[in-house]
Design a protein around this nucleic acid. Sequence first.
DNA 1: TGCCATTACTGTGCTTGACACAGTACTGTG
DNA 2: CACAGTACTGTGTCAAGCACAGTAATGGCA
Lengths: 127, 127
Amino acid sequence: MLDTVLCVVYYASHSIRHRTAPRETTTDLTELRRGTLVLAVLTRLKTRQYGYSLRQALAEGGMPIEEGTLYPLLRRLEAQGLLTSDWDTESAPPRRYYRLNADGRRTLAALTEAWRELARVMNAFLD
Amino acid sequence: MLDTVLCVVYYASHSIRHRTAPRETTTDLTELRRGTLVLAVLTRLKTRQYGYSLRQALAEGGMPIEEGTLYPLLRRLEAQGLLTSDWDTESAPPRRYYRLNADGRRTLAALTEAWRELARVMNAFLD
DNA sequence: TGCCATTACTGTGCTTGACACAGTACTGTG
DNA sequence: CACAGTACTGTGTCAAGCACAGTAATGGCA
């Protein structure tokens, strides 16, 4: 019995870790949508779009995204070779257009499948 | 015209940022599922569970989770006041049981709604 | 009895990406 | 000229998943 108490003490003592100001779960929506942003963005880039209009299209579809998030995200996707960008300075103001390339379209398809599977799993858990 | 070139130079020069070893998109699944783990865990804690069996239940349902992820997650949820834990040392080996409290059940309901809405938005984007 | 695998849990450090915030440039309108 | 809207870039902070490592207890087998 004393041994058992000691083991619990071991476990419990190692979990005594005071957290300062735990984040409210109302902001868990951030994490909930986190992985879906990339996929949502990819779906809108099947056709050529510039950042600002992309942001608007996402917001209209129910997926608002901050510019501090969107532009680095587009940077990342381009660095990963999934899309290409080009400047259009013929119209005013100057705009930077983005569009998926072949790898990007493949990734879109793959993530779409992954999403479908994830949604299936989640719906089963929620029933 | 020179002015326009200068503005593009401004924009473009500020995006020259070499990234080292961009992450492969095959691991985007991590981000895709990121926010759903909490919700999946909450659904399994409507009934009293200990960590190891919880991990097994999630894996069987299609949502595997690392122990280095699960236990801190449970810690967080408890710190946020969504669940309670208690040690059972009567059986062998000693186990730490977790169960949602009233706040946890409310959060589960709220996140469920949020998930449904997110899924609706995503499905619209994917069609 | 000792060893090993399984059960069960805890901790540390790294990585990644969302977000807040701030800044710049250009255009059109009053 | 001032201002608002359009359009884009950058920095720093924060939170959470993951890899990895460690500990303890139990049961089975040689």
